[in-house]
Nucleic acid binder design. Structure first.
Length: 617
RNA sequence: GCCGAUGUAGCUCAGUUUGGCAGAGCAACUGAUUCGUAAUCAGUAGGUCGGGUGUUCGAUUCACCUCAUCGGCACCA
């Protein structure tokens, strides 16, 4: 065995170890092993083992520093590791340095990591003061061998694998944070603290990751949206709500107009419905029972009222008024509906999670026979929109029946099958999320990641056999019978606020030109160019190019800096040179330069379509 | 809602350790400058130090409460 092999041979070889009432200290050098692939230090394969080592070293350090620490679980993660602990005085982020120093000490000591196999009773006795470890033991069979790993004074119930000593994990790690968690993720359980760390094979990888975290801050939509003068938040006067500044509202309108047009092409009819409703409606629909904590409600004129958290019951109301016969189906409604939800304070997050947001909502009322075709067309339209916005990597989830649901199971099964079939026909690469569906039906969810790689649900297609029944709507069939329509809830972007936030983060503020609220700024080099610049600007405006101007006496350099910070893609520079040649110098934010006539420039904008870039090349 | 951190000028942030007149840069405003691809110069103005209560001769600073934000957790029709 070479020195830099770190494989935990027992784990990988699946060796049969003797049952014994005594703990077995296994010395690897005495084990015969064949047919095993060794894992070497400094390989990707080793990384998750080393991160798991780091979790144990973290726990060991905490055990030494906090005598009364109780431990939960401590796995490796995609970028590092964490350990859940409970100590009598809580651990603050100020304590991390001290813990990290202790960890480095343990790494330095290269403590041998032993794998041991105990009996259930032995383990039970050993962990008698470790409440959470005992709970884990309770979940195991009494006849099972219990595997533990031990290094120094620290022994942990663990499936492994681990490397051979605490030195292998190296020093390329950093504790990154502390957060509160519930034991087993259940809010009814004890509150514990999770200490997070990140660990990499090389110093460069570590620094790269830390830089990534730092840069994620820079491209945060809250910061960028403010620099770009799109949005404003004032949490003291309206927490969890967006103030759209003029440029932001323009962006919002450009996106919603694009969607309106597209939906009209697909025979959706746009409607607008009230914000405020009598609570009775939501009691009937079933929402009140399940979501009253998240609905904003109050008495108004002595009537119990609710601000709509969604648009479906309102669209059902329109269906009731407008649709009588099977001839009217499928009936497709669309609305940019502003919804209010009382989101928990800790979940608010810029425009990603707000208490007031605009759903690009749509509902299709159809017959059972039309369902598949409708869902398929929903999937295809959705794909087209995401592609136009430049999102290629969207995550698709199929969420199935939750424990708390309405309606009967056979309808649910039918609905889940229909969604799955359509997803396959649309070539969607989806993952099933068991029990994550809405109470009234299963759903396809379309999620995108933000700059920090957090996933946010945007689009959704939900099948619903329940609301048409609870709110009692029907249509007359060919045979003259009354039948309930099937309802499909359909949002392409989901919340416009959330989608725009993600778009800002993805593009680092460089919005695709076809929806950039300001497409170009015309800037003068000096006052003598002002007349020509004015002419250029007014011509662009006449041709509906979203241009702005800057004829101030600031230097060109300072203008470039200013509009780079505002994330304006194109700067039209006009000075003496341009005046004389009757040309416009275009500077892309990247620094690339072009010289065009006014007509050429206008034509480029005219031919833009939904392309992100001007075809300047 | 929970754990931890944070809240000072429009924005980014010092100052609080040890209580004693509220600080800087950028932005804004005024004036000068007419400049060629990421910051021209000078001047002026701008803050109840998130809010409340307490301790104190005196609180931005200390204590308690509260609101909000950030990183996570939980929740997300």
């Amino acid at each position: 065995m070479s020195n830099n092999e770190i494989i935990d041979l027992h784990q990988y070889a699946n060796l049969k170890l003797p049952n014994s009432s005594d703990s077995q200290k296994i010395d690897i050098s005495k084990i015969q092993y064949t047919n095993m692939n060794p894992i070497y230090l400094n390989t990707e394969d080793a990384l998750h083992i080393l991160r798991h080592d780091a979790a144990h070293v973290l726990a060991q350090a905490i055990q030494e520093l906090y005598s009364n620490a109780e431990f939960g679980v401590g796995p490796s993660t995609e970028t590092g590791f964490f350990y859940d602990v409970k100590v009598s005085d809580s651990i603050s982020s100020d304590n991390l340095e001290e813990i990290e120093a202790k960890m480095r000490e343990i790494v330095n000591q290269k403590q041998r990591i032993f794998r041991e196999v105990w009996t259930y009773d032995q383990a039970y006795k050993f962990f008698k003061n470790q409440k959470y470890k005992l709970e884990i033991l309770n979940g195991l069979q009494k006849s099972e061998d219990i595997q533990v790993y031990r290094q120094g004074n620290f022994t942990d119930l663990c499936r492994g694998p681990h490397s051979l000593h605490t030195g292998n994990m190296g020093y390329n790690f950093k504790l990154t944070g502390v957060s509160g968690v519930y034991w087993k993720g259940d809010k009814n359980n004890d509150q514990m603290q999770r200490i997070y760390g990140t660990l990499w094979l090389t110093k460069e990888d570590l620094n790269q990751h830390l830089t990534f975290l730092k840069e994620a801050n820079e491209w945060d939509h809250r910061r960028l949206g403010q620099n770009m003068e799109l949005i404003h938040f004032d949490s003291q006067i309206s927490s969890g709500m967006t103030f759209w500044l003029p440029q932001g509202k323009l962006l919002f309108n450009l996106i919603s107009t694009y969607l309106s047009k597209l939906k009209a092409e697909h025979e959706y009819q746009e409607v607008s419905t009230p914000f405020l409703y009598n609570k009775v409606l939501w009691e009937k629909s079933g929402h009140w029972k399940l979501f009253q904590d998240n609905m904003i409600s109050f008495d108004f004129d002595e009537v119990p009222c609710v601000l709509k958290p969604m648009n479906c019951p309102a669209h059902i109301e329109i269906f009731r008024k407008m649709v009588k016969s099977y001839r009217d189906l499928p009936y497709k409604l669309a609305e940019f509906g502003f919804c209010h939800r009382y989101e928990p304070s800790g979940s608010l997050h810029g425009m990603m999670r707000t208490r007031g947001f605009t759903q690009d909502d749509a509902h299709i009322f159809c017959t059972a026979n039309q369902v598949e075709e409708m869902i398929l067309s929903c999937c295809n339209l959705l794909k087209q929109v995401y592609t136009n916005f430049g999102f290629e990597n969207i995550k698709v989830f199929l969420s199935t029946r939750p424990d708390e649901f309405a309606g009967d199971i056979s309808l649910w099964n039918q609905a889940e099958l229909a969604l799955e079939k359509a997803a396959k026909l649309a070539n969607l690469n989806y993952t099933i999320q068991p029990k994550e569906g809405a109470f009234y039906g299963p759903k396809l969810e379309f999620s995108i990641c933000d700059r920090r790689k957090r996933t946010w649900q945007c689009g959704t297609i939900q099948l619903d056999f329940v609301l048409p029944k609870s709110l009692d709507i029907g249509y007359v069939t060919e045979e003259g019978e009354i039948e309930r329509p099937v309802m499909i809830h359909y949002a392409i972007l989901g919340s416009l606020e959330r989608f725009i936030a993600i778009l800002i983060e993805h593009t680092k503020g460089l919005l695709p030109l076809w929806i950039a609220p300001t497409q170009i700024v015309i800037a003068t080099v000096s006052d003598e160019a002002k007349n020509f610049a004015e002419k250029v600007y007014s011509n662009l405006i006449k041709k509906e190019v979203r241009a702005k101007f800057d004829f101030t006496s600031k230097t060109l350099s300072s203008k470039i800096k200013l509009y780079t910070e505002k994330r304006i893609s194109l700067l039209g520079v006009i000075g003496k040179k341009e005046m004389q040649s009757n040309m416009i110098s275009i500077r892309k934010i990247s620094g690339k330069m072009y010289t065009l006539t006014l007509d050429e420039l206008v034509n480029h904008f005219k031919n833009l379509g939904t392309k992100s870039e001007l075809p300047l090349e």
